[in-house]
Design a protein around this nucleic acid. Structure first.
Lengths: 340, 340
DNA sequence: AAATAAAACGAAAACGATATCGCAAATAAA
DNA sequence: TTTATTTGCGATATCGTTTTCGTTTTATTT
C-alpha cells in the first residue's frame, strides 16, 4: 500500500503541488472552492503529511527530550508525567532517556542530541555529571535546555527546583523537636547541588539548636545498594548512638527500614526517620514514614512550560532563572514521640 | 552559529558532496586517503549529520513509541524501563505517550502516529480500548505493533504477557489454603483481557475447592478512586463477611489498606489480602503485602526485542505469537495465618 | 477603455543526505 | 599496444514538504 503524498493529491485534483499544500494549510492565497476540493480529496485518499519532510523543511520536530538518571524512581516519574501532560497540551512529543546515573552515558546522549534531533531538552543531571561542555555546546547550538531538580548552577538557563535548603532545615528541625540529639544525614552524592543544599539546611538546624556537629554522622552513600546497606548498618550498630536519621532521598530511607527490620531496631522508638520522598505508600509503611515531599508533578509541568513557551517565542537563549516550588512536610509515625 | 552540513564540508575539502557522503559512510568507492582527509575535516568543523534529512531519505527514524495508560504505575514504569534499556542497545529512541486510560486519547495518539513518525509501537491498551481499526490500519501501513500486558486478542501480532490465568488461580488458592472461605475479587475493568483471565483463574480455584461462588464478591472497580473506595468500604461492612481479598491490580490493594485503616479492620486477622503488584515497598507495608509480581522489566525487554528484531529484518508483518513470562508469588504477612 | 490593484494559482528552489548512475583515470589482461 | 577491468570520483535525481517569486486572471479604479 503506497502512502499518498502531495504529489498524488495534486495529480488527482489537477492542481499544482504548491497549491495543494497551501490549500491544506489554509493559505489566503487559495480560493475557498479549491480548498474544499483539495480537503475532500485528501480525506478521500487518506492523506497524512510526511513528518520527516516537514522536519527537514522547518528544522523542527516538535519533539523534546527528557533525560533522567533513572525511571524506577517516583520523583522522576512524577516529574516526567507532569512534563508529558504539558507536552500533550502543546502538541509536543517526548523522548525519554535514562543515564543510569552515569555521566559518560549522559554525555553520549547529549552528544547524540546535539545534531538537532530534538527542539529542546529537560534534564536532571547524573550525580557525577561532567557534561558542562556538552550542555553548553547544546545551548550554543540553539537547543534550549531546562534543568529540574538536579541542576547545574554553572550553566545559564532556567532551573526548576524545590526549596532544598529550607526543606533540609525543616526536616532536621522536626527531628530535633521530636527529641533527637544525634542526627545522621544520609547523603546520596557530594556532587549534587540538591544534596549539598539539603545538607546545609541540616547543618543550619543543628547550629540553631546548638547541637554538636559530628562528622561521623554524615553517611556518604552512593549508587551501590550493598555498600549503602553496610554503611547504614555500621552507623546503627556503632558506639555513637544515632537517634534520628534524615535521608536525602527515598531509597536510602527504604534501605534504612530494611536494615532496621534486620537488626530489630524499632522505628520510631530507637531511631526516628524522616526522608525526602515521593512514595505514594508512605502512610502505609510500617511505621508510616514522615516525609518531605517535593511537588514533582508540578516541577515537571513548570519546567516543560518554560521550555515550550521559550520554543514558541523562538528566542535563542533562555534567561538564567531559578524557579522554586516548595516541598511539604508530612508528619507520620516514623518520627512519632508517642512510643506505645 | 551556522550548523555545518555536507555541502560546507565538500566546499572545504574540494571534494564533491556525494564523495564526502560516501567517505563518511566508509564506502569502498572512496580511497583511504580522501576518507582520512574528509573525516579529519569533519572532525575539525564539527560536522554532525542532520537527522531529519536521513529520516526523509530512508523513511525511518530509529524511533519507537511506547504507549501506556499511565506513568504513575510501577508495572508500566518497569516495563518501559526494560524497553528503554533494549532501545539503547539497538540505538533506538523512545517516545512516551500516556492515554490516561481514555480510549479516545489512545485513538488520537495512534491516529497521529499513523503518518509514520515512528518505526514501531509498543502498547498496553486502555481499559476501554476501541482502537482496533486504528491499530489494524497502523499494521497495514507497515508500522509494526507489539502488545504487552494489556493486549488485544483480535489483532494478529506479537503479544507479551504474564500467565494471568494461572496466577489468578495461584493467588486464590493461596488465600483458600490460608483459610479464607469468602473471597472477594477486586476487578479493575471488565473489558481488559488481563482482568478476565485473572478472574477466570479465581473462579477455577473456587471450583477446585468447592467454594460457593457469590456474585456479590466480584467488586467492579474502575478509574475513579472515590467510587472504588466506597465500593470496597461497602464490601467490608456488608452482611456477608469477607475474609479474603484478591486485588487484580496494585492500586486496589492499596486502597483496601487505607479503607481497612479507617475502619479499624485488621489485616490479616480479619481479612487477608493478596494482590498483583510491582511495589518495591511491598515488604515494608503494614502489614507486608503478599503479592503476585509480574516480571515487568523482563516483559518490557522482551516486547522491545521482538519489535527491534522485526524491524531489523524489515519483514512487513509480525507473526501472531503469545509470549508468556510467569509471575511469582511472594507470601508475606497480609495473608499470614499467624495472627499474633 | 485604459491603467492599476488584487486574487488565485504554478514553477522552482530550498531543507540535507543518499544512492544510482556515468565518466574518467589507473591498472590488469590479452 | 590494444582491450578489458577495476578504482575513484562527480553530476544528478530523490525523499515530501514549504515558501518565495512569477505569472495569469479577475476585479477595481480613473
Amino acid at each position: 500500500m503506497h502512502k499518498v503524498n502531495l504529489k498524488d493529491l495534486a495529480h488527482a485534483t489537477n492542481i499544482s503541488i504548491s497549491s495543494v499544500s497551501k490549500a491544506l494549510r489554509d493559505s489566503h492565497e487559495i480560493s475557498s472552492e479549491t480548498k474544499k476540493k483539495v480537503i475532500a480529496k485528501a480525506q478521500e485518499m487518506g492523506y497524512t503529511p510526511n513528518p520527516y519532510a516537514g522536519f527537514l523543511r522547518n528544522q523542527k520536530s516538535k519533539t523534546i527530550a527528557v533525560i533522567v538518571p533513572e525511571l524506577t524512581n517516583n520523583y522522576f516519574i512524577q516529574a516526567i508525567s507532569g512534563a508529558e501532560s504539558i507536552a500533550q497540551e502543546f502538541s509536543y512529543h517526548v523522548l525519554i532517556y535514562t543515564t543510569n546515573d552515569d555521566f559518560e552515558k549522559e554525555a553520549s546522549i547529549l552528544q547524540h542530541l546535539s545534531n538537532g534531533r530534538v527542539d529542546g531538552i529537560l534534564i536532571s543531571v547524573s550525580s557525577n555529571t561532567n557534561s558542562l561542555t556538552q550542555l553548553n555546546e547544546l545551548i550554543q547550538a540553539g537547543i534550549p535546555v531546562v534543568f529540574f531538580d538536579r541542576i547545574c548552577h554553572e550553566i545559564e538557563t532556567a532551573k526548576v527546583t524545590t526549596n532544598d535548603f529550607a526543606s533540609g532545615f525543616i526536616a532536621t528541625e522536626h527531628l530535633i523537636k521530636s527529641g533527637c540529639k544525634n542526627i545522621a544525614y544520609l547523603s546520596i552524592s557530594d556532587h549534587l547541588s540538591i544534596d549539598q543544599k539539603r545538607k546545609q539546611g541540616y547543618f543550619e538546624a543543628l547550629n540553631k539548636y546548638d547541637i554538636q556537629h559530628d562528622e561521623s554522622f554524615i553517611i556518604k552513600c552512593g549508587a551501590d545498594e550493598k555498600t549503602n546497606a553496610s554503611k547504614i548498618k555500621k552507623m546503627l550498630t556503632g558506639k555513637k548512638h544515632v537517634d534520628g536519621i534524615f535521608a536525602s532521598v527515598e531509597k536510602l530511607a527504604l534501605k534504612t527500614y530494611k536494615v532496621c527490620n534486620e537488626l530489630k531496631i524499632n522505628i520510631p522508638k530507637d531511631v526516628k526517620i524522616i526522608s525526602f520522598s515521593n512514595l505514594r505508600t508512605a502512610d502505609l509503611l510500617n511505621p508510616s514514614l514522615t516525609t518531605i515531599t517535593q511537588p514533582a508533578y508540578e516541577i515537571g509541568k513548570e519546567a516543560a512550560k518554560i521550555l515550550f513557551n521559550h520554543l514558541a517565542k523562538r528566542k535563542s537563549i533562555i534567561q538564567n532563572e531559578n524557579i522554586v516550588i516548595n516541598s511539604v512536610l508530612t508528619v507520620r509515625n516514623s518520627t512519632s514521640t508517642n512510643t506505645k
